[in-house]
Amino acid sequence: MSILVYTELSKGKVKKSSLEAVNYASRLAAQLNTTATAVIAGDADVADLGKAGAKKVLRLKNEKLKSLDSLYLTAAIEQAAAAEGADVIVFVYDFTGKAIASRLAARLKAGMVAGVVDNPVISGGSFTVKKNVFSGKATAVYSLNSTKKIISLLASSFPIELTANTAEVVDFSVNLDTINSPVKVKEVKQDTSELSLTDADIVVSAGRGLKGPENWGMIEDLAKTLGAATACSRPVADMHWRPHHEHVGQTGTAIRPNLYFAIGISGAIQHLAGVNGSKTIVAINSDKEAPFFKSADYGIVGDAFEVVPKLIQALKTFKAQQ
């Protein structure tokens, strides 16, 4: 019995969130006196999976897996779990995780908790995990009561630790002969931004206080200076000032970067719901009564059009001294 963890590549490298998941699985494996096995589709270098704590890596092999179709992938992971005798399977709660983990849970009759933010607590016969509920206003401890368990992790909830460990990498051939997915991919639109919002360490976000799309130049400059991704509030996306995928909050993407800048955003509860997991929050707003200041660690009361260019300068000076 090992702990299985589903991992993915992005641009030829193991995803950061996958390394978090492998770390998590290896800590869990240690608690249960077993080892963690990572599964991955694709051919890139996977040494990082070993460094993150996987004892073994199964490279899923089947032509049909080129498309990451959820029916094929679910079957592939099911077969890998059976081969490894894994009762616990760890996923990342990202788009792929959302498409396959719950399907697999129903197939295996496995209790599943999605969006987990803490290591499991195992004592006696009980197995509990913690997750955020009520859009970040509270946390809940869930007990998983079935033998088979699926844990889907909220990305950026755990620090990544790499060691000199190496994993044994073996090909795992998957049998998908009897499965023919009716879902045909017609078009893939790649996100053109360099940095994905959920993976970014620093996020620079701006709202209606910026007055119009033509004013986003300084926001992009600030993001560039910081090596950050850009985000926005909902009305900004609704008015098409910025693309929809930048919308963060309750009805947009939930993010938890290390550092979040909210510029000209009032701090409505629905916006906070998607960002209040950020480690450090900076709010810049011309209104000293803006609700965001109640949820921020650092605040500047001032006009964004004056503050942001000065902040960029200050950051450049700082970087030059480093």
Partner: peptide
């Protein structure tokens, strides 16, 4: 297959 054991309110941020 799962059940909530307990809830806890998220801690607020300390003063800005």
């Amino acid at each position: 297959l799962t059940n909530v054991v307990s809830y806890k309110l998220a801690p607020g941020r300390t003063d800005c």
